[in-house]
Simulated assay, not measured.
Amino acid sequence: MAKRVKKEAGDMSFMDHLEELRWLLIRSTIAIVIGGLVAYSFSDFIFDEIIFAPKSGDFITYRIFCDIATKYDLDKSFCMDELPFEIQSRTLDGQFSTDLWTAVTAGFILAFPFILWEFWKFIRPALYDNERKYAIAFLFSTSILFFLGVLFGYYLITPLSLNFLGNYRISSIVKNDIDLQSYISVIKTTAISCGLVFELPIVMYFLSKLGLVTAATMRNFRRYAYVIMLVIAAVVTPPDVVSQLIVTIPLVILYEMSILIASRMNRTPKTS
């Protein structure tokens, strides 16, 4: 049997690229399933100590905001024993399906560095020789940014959102009994979304490399970007400046990092 020889990017046909992409997806899916099985075996800890932790008033974020509010005489909505709503499962398979899909989400988070490695191998043939040596730096920085984003979403955006939405009232007649899947969805969506948002500098690197984004464009859009960040912070935080700044500052840092990366890419000559 003839030994399969890996082709370079220039020698690969469209079908060859599709075949590589297919195996990338297969290996990534297997990694997510393995990570999900590991997470499923620790489901009690994941639900009791992680997912349902932000519902308690003793959650670390609430305690920090309560201490800040007490010290500076600000809004004390975070000084509480528990969020004013109950979590319920309204379907027969609700708890099972929630357990299953939460394990899949955790599996994706755990497998993220491996998925990145597979992505890097897929795009590596299209890179210049002087860019291929940055594989470890790419994997490390991208993984760190993703995990920082997940932590940022879980420890900051999630409790702020739960506190805002859980205390929001259109009438005292309406009682908040939150569906389990709705509660889980807020946490999963927030954590994953923030993890992906924190990849902004990496995305800007590739977009700048392709010539689709320039530092000048991002600088011109900066004032609008800051307004959007402030609006987001104002929605998910109490009506005080300190809370809004805590949410806004990391987003501003990410945006400025993206401008620096784009600026460097725009003036870096392409060499083979």
Rank of each mutant, 00 (worst) to 15 (best):
T142H: 06
F122G: 02
S97K: 10
E8F: 06
F108V: 12
M15T: 09
L180T: 06
Y205M: 02
W117E: 06
L254P: 05
V236C: 05
A111I: 04
I170C: 03
S272K: 09
Y128I: 05
D93E: 09
V236H: 00
I259R: 12
T61K: 01
K71T: 13
W117V: 00
I246N: 00
D177W: 09
P201D: 08
M204N: 07
A111Q: 05
S161E: 00
P269L: 09
F47D: 04
D11S: 10
A191P: 00
F119G: 02
V213P: 02
E8T: 11
R222W: 13
L196H: 03
F108H: 02
D44F: 01
P250M: 07
S185N: 13
I109P: 04
F147T: 05
F42M: 11
S171N: 15
F206A: 01
T158E: 08
G10C: 05
V104T: 05
P269H: 07
I246E: 00
K71G: 03
K3L: 13
E19R: 09
A103M: 05
S97C: 04
L24H: 13
Y255I: 01
E20F: 02
L145Q: 07
Y134H: 14
V235R: 00
I26K: 01
I60A: 14
K71Y: 06
D93F: 10
P250E: 05
E49Q: 14
W23H: 07
A215Q: 05
K188F: 07
L156I: 15
F114N: 12
E49G: 09
A103Q: 06
F114D: 11
D16K: 00
F85Q: 12
K270L: 13
I26T: 01
S172G: 14
I50Q: 08
T158Q: 10
T105C: 14
S77C: 03
G195T: 08
A191Q: 03
M12V: 05
A9H: 10
W101L: 13
S13F: 01
D99L: 08
C79I: 01
K175T: 15
C66T: 08
M218A: 03
L260N: 12
V33C: 05
